[in-house]
């Protein structure tokens, strides 16, 4: 009998994850064994992966909502996803390819620059959308409970669709210029994951900060500009000295953009830069997740 009680207590402790809030053992039968404890939780809290998993369908719905809403009532519809990188490519080709004659390792400039524009467009649009996502969804924050992390994550993930479209466009571009991809392209999926990590690392942190300080809405455009010119989007990584490469690699997109070119076009890999950038990206995401969890409980008070 006593053993049974102990077993029941342990089962409950396991379910609640908090032994301190249990006063009497509850028989683990039916719905009685579920208990949710609401109390102030100071300090840092780990991500509740189990809850996120339980709500996973909501993440899908939020992404799907943003995708289906974005191009409603537009004449060109999803063509807009193509227009932006295409325009960037044309401008860059004119300025950096034609006027400044940036070295491209022998590749036509459009093919060269587009390889970098793909991850950059995803990154810049993704973290920008994530940064303002929470501040723009006050009703959701103050009126209903769900894992708040989904809001910036879904806002950024939407741009994966755009990235997929631009990849098709890039494939067409390579066919037109008669450029074959190198074997390094097998690393592309890994690089895409790294791009997502970098995007969320910055986007999630900014999203939480923007709830408290609307100043960050105005900081995002500056940040985008700074990160873009310090990343080798328009120019090859080779124009920098080793020292500068190490410093600039603190911008996660520095190593990542370079690596996209190495993977697709077979340009020389700069592994130290990639290593530093990858570390920055992962570290920023870990920080972002903890910072978000720490601050999310005050979102509704501020939003």
């Amino acid at each position: 009998m006593i053993e049974q009680d102990v077993a029941a207590t342990q089962a409950d402790v396991h379910l609640n994850g908090r032994a301190d809030c249990l006063e009497a053992p509850v028989p683990p039968t039916g719905i009685e064994d579920y208990e949710l404890v609401i109390r102030p939780q100071p300090g840092w809290i780990a991500i509740d992966w189990r809850e996120m998993w339980a709500y996973r369908e909501l993440l899908v719905f939020l992404v799907w909502r943003d995708i289906s809403v974005r191009y409603k009532q537009t004449v060109l519809g999803f063509a807009w996803a193509v227009v932006q990188p295409l325009m960037m490519m044309l401008i860059f080709t004119l300025i950096f390819g034609r006027f400044m004659k940036v070295p491209t390792g022998g590749y036509p400039y459009p093919v060269f620059v587009f390889a970098g524009l793909m991850p950059w467009t995803f990154f810049s649009q993704g973290f920008g959308a994530a940064a303002t996502s929470l501040a723009n969804q006050q009703a959701l924050l103050t009126k209903v409970y769900f894992p708040r992390l989904f809001v910036p994550v879904s806002a950024a993930m939407v741009f994966l669709v755009d990235m997929a479209i631009t990849m098709v466009l890039y494939a067409a571009l390579m066919v037109i210029y008669g450029v074959a991809p190198s074997w390094g392209i097998v690393w592309l999926p890994l690089l895409i994951v790294l791009t997502i990590i970098a995007t969320l690392g910055l986007g999630v942190t900014l999203a939480a900060l923007t709830v408290f300080y609307r100043d960050f809405k105005h900081i995002v455009p500056f940040l985008t500009m700074i990160l873009m010119y310090t990343a080798p989007v328009a120019y090859p990584i080779s124009i920098h000295s080793q020292v500068w490469r190490a410093i600039l690699s603190l911008n996660p997109m520095f190593g990542i953009v370079g690596a996209y070119r190495s993977a697709i076009l077979g340009l020389e890999w700069d592994l130290p830069s990639l290593a530093i950038s990858a570390t920055t990206a992962v570290a920023s995401l870990i920080f972002a997740l903890f910072y978000f969890r720490k601050t999310e409980r005050a979102f509704a008070d501020y939003a």
């Binding site: 809030c21 959701l140 209903v144």
Partner: peptide, 26 residues
Amino acid sequence: SRIVEPTGGCARLRGRVASLLEVGTG
């Protein structure tokens, strides 16, 4: 509804909660 965190005290809910604080949220 777990939207705001209490400053003190403790609440226990022994069941799945749905809250309707506003019509048409989202």
